[in-house]
């Protein structure tokens, strides 16, 4: 089984180095996508958001991580069962277990990725010398810069998303429902081992704006159908978006597809180090420019891009939706996605 870090503690070490540079003694992390980036733990995936809870503790003094879990299942080799603290429905019991993590009680500056008021009050009582600070910028800074191994993980996830998309494309025909297309994607990616769709597959007949929810609508000749598929594989997100014409494209549809591709290429080319993302998002027809890794991370409008950023770009022109994952390389920005853009 592979995970974002495999059995390699490279991410944890990068994070610890960043903590040292920022003067952060310990981290309490609650968001699962961040925890899987740091530790590589392969744990049950749930949909939706949950309030902050201290599910992972990283201590600079001991240079290790501890996880909230019931067992060592899915842990990387460098974290054994001694790095697990058990769950409790009682916040005081949980805080006692967290505070017992070696080295944490002496940590003065403790970063967290959430600020649930009740949880924070209880933790503060058990960690009396700690000052809680926003760990968001530190985490984003470390997670954004991808390594070749990270990009291989992202590429593998994209590979699965593309194979799912190929199955959907093979299913597109007049008379097929949007829902059946979504099912075809979910079925294929599940069989390929990517059990959690990164987001529910949107396979919709195009309207004036891209639709997000497939339904019972039946595809008819002359329709454009937008296909947006995402997967989580070994913790990494893989996304792709394309549009296909049902029963042959009209001249108008072909020119919309050309315009969409031109915009996508322009934005890709413009994703260069130093460029603030806001200027790219402001272009007409651009729907998203976000960071991508174990999450779809917002990049602030004034935040300049940097070498080894990986971004998700999505554009839409007259019902034609296109989306690629791109890597901001030293010499050029290149798509990691490799599916034909045409409508056929």
């Amino acid at each position: 089984m592979t995970t974002p870090t495999g059995d390699d503690r490279a991410h944890l070490d990068r994070l610890l180095d960043a903590m040292t540079a920022a003067g952060v003694d310990a981290l309490l992390l609650g968001h699962e996508d961040g925890i899987r980036w740091v530790t590589g733990a392969d744990r049950l995936r749930l949909t939706g958001t949950r309030p902050f809870a201290p599910a992972c503790v990283v201590v600079r003094a001991t240079r290790t991580a501890h996880l909230l879990a019931t067992s060592d299942a899915g842990l990387p080799a460098f974290l054994d069962v001694d790095h697990v603290y058990g769950p409790s429905w009682d916040l005081v019991t949980l805080a006692t277990r967290v505070a017992a993590v070696p080295g944490l009680a002496r940590a003065r500056t403790v970063g967290t990725d959430g600020t649930d008021p009740t949880v924070e009050d209880v933790l503060a009582a058990f960690l009396p010398v700690a000052t809680f600070v926003d760990a968001g910028p530190l985490l984003r800074g470390v997670r954004r810069r991808t390594s070749p191994a990270d990009r291989a993980g992202i590429a593998a996830a994209i590979g699965v998303a593309q194979r799912g998309l190929a199955t959907v494309v093979g299913t597109v025909a007049p008379g097929v429902t949007e829902r059946r297309l979504s099912g075809a994607f979910a079925g294929r990616i599940g069989r390929l081992g990517a059990t959690m769709p990164a987001f529910a597959t949107a396979t919709c007949v195009a309207g004036t704006a891209p639709r997000s929810f497939p339904g019972e609508r039946t595809l008819a000749a002359g329709d454009l159908v937008t296909l947006r598929g995402g997967v989580v594989l070994d913790g990494w997100l893989g996304l792709v978006a394309r549009t296909r014409a049902v029963g042959g494209a009209t001249a108008g549809q072909v020119s919309a597809a050309e315009a969409a591709l031109e915009t996508l290429r322009l934005v890709t080319t413009a994703c260069r180090p130093g460029r603030p993302v806001g200027s790219l998002r402001a272009r007409p027809d651009v729907r998203a420019v976000d960071g991508l890794g174990t999450d779809l991370a917002p990049i602030g409008a004034d935040d300049p891009l940097a070498v080894d950023d990986v971004c998700w770009i999505e554009v839409a022109v007259d019902g034609v939706l296109l989306g690629d994952v791109v890597h901001v390389g030293t010499d050029a920005t290149v798509p990691l996605t490799g599916v034909p853009y045409g409508l056929g």
Binding site: H31, R45, T49, D290
Partner: peptide, 15 residues
């Protein structure tokens, strides 16, 4: 409100 079912890595940034 309908929201697409999503892994936390997508759901959290797009609440």
């Amino acid at each position: 409100a309908d929201t697409p079912t999503a892994d936390v890595g997508v759901a959290r940034p797009r609440r």
